[in-house]
């Protein structure tokens, strides 16, 4: 689980009080952002309309955050607790995004009915998971690796950004190089050679072998 070239940062498992502090603060920040969005959200009738639920939930998240950060609430299963909290956040984003969609008219579903229904159910399940994380002893949070995810994500984003303007050859070469940096046992010369070979292979296979419409070089 540990990496060969360690990114700067704490021990392998953040433990005890500092974790509570970080986790609690994260919850508070997320709750505040959500609350902010719910107020910024335009055009809705009354404070007790559909906007009420996201606000109540934000308040709940902030409260939980304060309780955790101040040590009032002991998180027994952090994996479940924070996992559930994140899903509540996701459900709230969906709620806020679908709030101005028309709902049921008579017995006909509107476009907003099903998204809100699923979001509400998800909130229910996630609260259950979080409460489970408070009640039962569970595994500690795993340490996140940074190098892999960052370089891999960057490489894919580079592909997305350059495939149109720069063409397949340059784009795939850059993608391969950046993604190769994701692993600590990177060997520059080998990687460079391998990237050249792979790029050549891709530039032959996809446009010529498979007749897919790819532009090979930058267009000016």
């Amino acid at each position: 689980m540990s990496e060969a070239s360690p990114p700067a940062g704490g021990g392998s498992v953040i433990s005890g009080e500092s974790q509570n502090l970080y986790g609690g603060t994260t919850l508070i920040v997320v709750g505040l952002v959500m609350l902010g969005i719910s107020f910024y959200h335009p055009g809705l009738a009354g404070p007790f309309g559909p906007i009420m639920w996201p606000r109540v939930l934000s308040a709940l998240i902030i409260l939980a955050g304060v309780a955790v950060a101040s040590g009032q609430l002991r998180v027994r299963g952090p994996k479940d607790f924070y996992g559930g909290a994140a899903l509540i956040g996701l459900a709230m984003v969906a709620m806020l995004a679908s709030i101005d969609l028309p709902g049921m008219r008579g017995f006909a579903f509107g476009p907003g009915t099903a998204p809100r229904l699923f979001a509400m159910l998800l909130v229910g399940a996630s609260i259950g998971i979080s409460i489970g994380g408070l009640l039962f002893e569970g595994p500690a949070l795993e340490r996140y690796a940074f190098r892999g995810p960052i370089f891999l994500t960057a490489s894919v984003l580079i592909f997305a950004g350059t495939i149109r303007p720069l063409g397949l050859v340059l784009s795939s070469f850059a993608t391969i190089m950046v993604s190769a940096m994701a692993t600590p046992d990177l060997k520059w010369r080998e990687t460079l050679l391998w990237a050249v070979i792979l790029t050549a292979f891709c530039s032959l296979l996809f446009p010529y072998g498979l007749n897919l419409p790819f532009q090979l070089w930058p267009r000016f």
């Binding site: 391969i176 692993t183 996809f206």
Partner: peptide, 17 residues
């Protein structure tokens, strides 16, 4: 370390196309 860049680039091209 050689395999995964290959997988990544194939996935990218696959999704894009």
């Amino acid at each position: 370390r050689h395999l995964f860049p290959m997988i990544i680039i194939f996935c990218c091209i696959g999704v894009y196309s």
